[in-house]
Each structure stands twice: as structure tokens, then as C-alpha cells.
């Protein structure tokens, strides 16, 4: 037990140091894309982008927000929202509390009010460390409340997606979150709100097929896998190998589904530009 606490404490301190940019670990981390090792320090300075190949490694929701928002502007929304177990699925509650312990997250989404270069907006970020960022009822509810809150406050909405899709353990209730979130962002947008959807690696299934594909502006980090069906399912279905780069952000850009690819260190500048162009959330 003591060990768990000290490990948790270590991690929290490490996160704090990472946020403040003063990590001096001698640890080396291997890139899951190119297989090369680089000092953790270099990864940290590079916002967790591989210093060798430029692979944009998945990052946690709080970390992402801390790199995008103006210092001190982060105000978490709906942080009490907890997951449910609508199917009474065997082993699911235990899995949820285990993940809460290891990630510090209640579920796979974080919503916040924040500013980028002084421009106020509502943010929602999916975190792939929590069951692949899958959308269960709590994630669907958080996205929906973020959209409704943004609508009520007449603020722009920025969502960063990273998700394996629907949360199997919540079955049909998970599927319904697609309808719910799509309806919520649709309602927000038809009320004049600006919605910027940002894909990160990987985003597939029910998240791609709902709110994530509905942005007024569609952005993605480079190399992100974006699709409805996952590559393995497609290969099994069509019984052939998919070409290199299939379903990657660059491919989607070429096929007309994205406005732009944004490097991780460019998010602040790009969001700031877009928010300024839509001052007052897109209203005249």
C-alpha cells in the first residue's frame, strides 16, 4: 500500500516537473513508431513528439491542456462526473477504479474552461490512457455538457479526440452517446457557435463517426490514425493489405476531410488565430 502511495506521489511530482519544464531525468524512452531511443528530457522539451522521427506520441488530457492553455487559465468543468456501469458488466467497476488509481482520471474525458492568448473557450480532451479513450456514458455526457455549456456561455468549443470508439463494456448505452454528442454539437453549431475539432492519434470508430467529424474547422496532428473501421478489421474484410499511410491524417487531408495538419508545438498559435477570427464565438 505504502508503495502504491509513494509511486503515485512520484508520478505527481514528475508531472509537476514536466509541466514546469524542469525534468532532468536520465531516463531514455523508446519511440513506438521508429523504435529509436531518446533521452526523456528531449521528449519533454519536444512535447512528447519523438525527437528522431517526429511521431506525435499520445499524451494525457491534462498534459495537453497545460501545453495549450494560457498559464493559470485552466478551470476544470464537470470534474465530478463519474462513469456508470449500465450493463452490470463483469469486472468493469474494478477496471474503472484501477484506471482511476493509475491515471488520476474519473473517465476518458476532461472538460475545461480556458484561454489561448487571452481568447476564452470551452475545451474537451479525450485521454487514451483510459480504456483507449473509448466513449462510454460518462464521456458522452461530458462532451454533451461541454457543448451545452459553450452554447449557454456563447463560447467557442474545442475538442481534442483520441479514442478507440465506443466503450464495449457499456454496450448499447455507449452507442447512444454517438447520437447524443452529434446532436449536442449540431445544436451548438446551429446556434451560431464555433466548433473546432482536433484529431489526435488514434481516433476511430464511434468517435470518428460522431462529434469528432462535425467540426466547423477540422484539424489533426500529423500521422494520426483516423477512421471509422480500424485497419485490422478492414484488412480482414477485404483480405488484402492496406497501403502505407492509409487512414493517416495526411491521407485524410488529401481526401478532403481535414482543413490542416497541426504540429504539437503549433496548437497554441493555430487555435489563437482561429479563435481571433471568430471573436465572440462566431457571432457578429
Amino acid at each position: 500500500m505504502n508503495q502504491t502511495f509513494s509511486r503515485r506521489r512520484d508520478r505527481l511530482l514528475t508531472y509537476q516537473a514536466m509541466r514546469e519544464g524542469k525534468i532532468t531525468s536520465s531516463r531514455r524512452t523508446r519511440c513506438s513508431a521508429c523504435g529509436e531511443e531518446s533521452p526523456q528530457l528531449e521528449w519533454d522539451r519536444n512535447f512528447q513528439v519523438c525527437p528522431r522521427c517526429g511521431f506525435h506520441a499520445p499524451v494525457g488530457a491534462y498534459y495537453r491542456l497545460s501545453n495549450i492553455l494560457d498559464p493559470g487559465s485552466f478551470q476544470e468543468l464537470e470534474d465530478k462526473l463519474s462513469p456508470a456501469d449500465p450493463l452490470a458488466f463483469p469486472g468493469y467497476p474494478a477496471k474503472l477504479s484501477e484506471l482511476e488509481q493509475s491515471t488520476g482520471l474519473k473517465d476518458a474525458a476532461v472538460a475545461a474552461l480556458g484561454r489561448v492568448d487571452g481568447h476564452k473557450a470551452v475545451f474537451a480532451v479525450l485521454d487514451s490512457r483510459f480504456l483507449m479513450g473509448s466513449m462510454g456514458t460518462a464521456v458522452g455526457e461530458k462532451i454533451t455538457r461541454a457543448a451545452e455549456y459553450a452554447g449557454k456561455k456563447k463560447l467557442p468549443l474545442v475538442i481534442f479526440s483520441a479514442s478507440g470508439g465506443a466503450r464495449m463494456q457499456e454496450g448499447i448505452f455507449s452507442l447512444m452517446q454517438m447520437a447524443k454528442t452529434a446532436a449536442a454539437v449540431q445544436r451548438f453549431q446551429s446556434g451560431g457557435g464555433l466548433y473546432i475539432s482536433c484529431f489526435t492519434h488514434p481516433t476511430t470508430g464511434g468517435v470518428t463517426a460522431s462529434f469528432a467529424s462535425l467540426g466547423d474547422i477540422m484539424l489533426s496532428e500529423p500521422g494520426a490514425l483516423i477512421g471509422f473501421a480500424g485497419p485490422r478489421v478492414i484488412e480482414q474484410t477485404i483480405k488484402e493489405q492496406l497501403p502505407e499511410g492509409f487512414q493517416r491524417a495526411e491521407y485524410l487531408l488529401d481526401h478532403g476531410f481535414l482543413d490542416r495538419i497541426v504540429l504539437r508545438n503549433e496548437w497554441r498559435a493555430v487555435l489563437s488565430q482561429l479563435l481571433a477570427l471568430h471573436e465572440k464565438g462566431g457571432r457578429p
Binding site: M178, S210, L214, F228, F257
Partner: peptide, 11 residues
Amino acid sequence: GQGEAIAQTLA
């Protein structure tokens, strides 16, 4: 754009 097509239909 299977994902986009489904998303737009839902919306």
C-alpha cells in the same frame, strides 16, 4: 469518409 457520413447523418 464513412465516419463523416455517419456523423453527418446523426447530426
